[in-house]
Design a protein around this nucleic acid. Structure first.
Lengths: 211, 211
DNA sequence: GTCTATACTGAGATAGAC
DNA sequence: GTCTATCTCAGTATAGAC
């Protein structure tokens, strides 16, 4: 059997991913892990730090592979990969993780939605995020800077929704091609949204029609 | 001064929108509204039903106007409005509300993100949602049905993120042109994402290249 | 019909015995 | 390292004053 922290991490991962963070009580987690109430605070400090560890445990390898894929995409495209290639580099590691562990992307989506990716996490993700933002910025140079920022913001929401999949679905999509297929759909959608000219911009030629 | 339910609704709206639903306690709300703890239970039944009323109070008029704008858009386009026109009909009433009451779109975004738009609310919104889904479906007839469903799902996430604006921003967008401008950006982004051909689909001619 | 006071249950967190 | 007991504060419920 696993040790106490391991049992707690497993139980927490499962419950957080399926029920959400605030909906799950520490009592549920410790019951599932078959340990004592105080174990969480002894090993992790708080419910939120437990979540941190749950995420970190899986996020490290995913982020590492994201960067490697982005490196390769940039090498393949002489430093200027297409939007879709960049998005693929970001998403594919998630898809691969999802085949082993379908709970992890669900968890990430849920936590993003609940707005509780704590500071610790944000710091852990920041190198990856800024790296991808720079790459995306280069891929859509025609966009005004603030337009770009807003589109990234919109994209974030779409990604979170795509990951957690079913929570408050109004459209009831069906996962016919598996998680991988879902991500391909998302990339097509986001790629088109990101690369489209901003309002008032000429479709293909940036013919500086004043400001 | 307002009556007790009115004071509670105002306080709850402000706090829910700025702090989130689960982050705000009933004690905070009743303190702000300067009423007794039991008032919430007496007038509304529970914290969740209080939220219901907070939303319903503002959502009714917004939804009504949404349907009117959609009717007009369909009339103007002989029954086949463009994607962007449909999205405008959905979003503009929010933008107008936002000028009087910036808290309401923020609240809607937050609640959507937290996944606690309760069943009562969902039932209240459903007529509007299905009406818009039908219109959008007609505007992108080239998409396979499941592709369409997924894109709506992605769109939902982007809208929620756009509404609540700043919570967990990694891109730090600036609201230069006001809420109205933000919505215009969103429509351009979503319009491009929705209308783009699905993977394996020919750009402009649906030349049935096998299944 | 309304509001106040107060009690109940269950949450997260902590101190200290073992 | 682990467990018991306990603290504080959340949402909820009820009894009874006005």
């Amino acid at each position: 059997m696993l040790d106490t922290p391991g049992k707690l991490l497993d139980a927490a991962e499962r419950l957080f991913a399926t029920e959400g963070f605030s909906a799950v009580s520490l009592r549920q987690i410790i019951a599932e892990a078959e340990v004592n109430v105080a174990a969480v605070h002894y090993h992790f400090g708080s419910k939120l730090e437990l979540l941190d560890q749950v995420i970190m445990r899986k996020a490290g390898p995913v982020n590492k592979e994201r960067l490697e894929l982005l490196d390769r995409a940039e090498a393949d495209a002489n430093g200027n990969p297409e939007v879709e290639a960049i998005l693929s580099a970001f998403m594919l590691p998630m898809a691969q993780t999802a085949t082993d562990n379908p709970l992890f992307p669900k968890l990430m989506g849920r936590m993003q939605s609940e707005g509780i990716l704590s500071d610790v996490i944000e710091r852990n993700f920041q190198p990856v995020i800024t790296r991808f933002l720079v790459a995306l910025r280069k891929a859509v140079p025609h966009l005004p800077d603030n337009e770009f920022r807003w589109r990234i913001h919109f994209m974030q929401g779409a990604i979170a929704c795509a990951m957690s999949s079913e929570p408050h679905a109004v459209s009831h999509p069906v996962d016919d091609g598996g998680f991988r297929k879902r991500i391909e759909r998302l990339i097509v959608f986001l790629g088109a949204g990101l690369r489209t000219p901003s309002a008032g911009e000429k479709p293909h030629k940036p013919s500086g029609k004043n400001k």
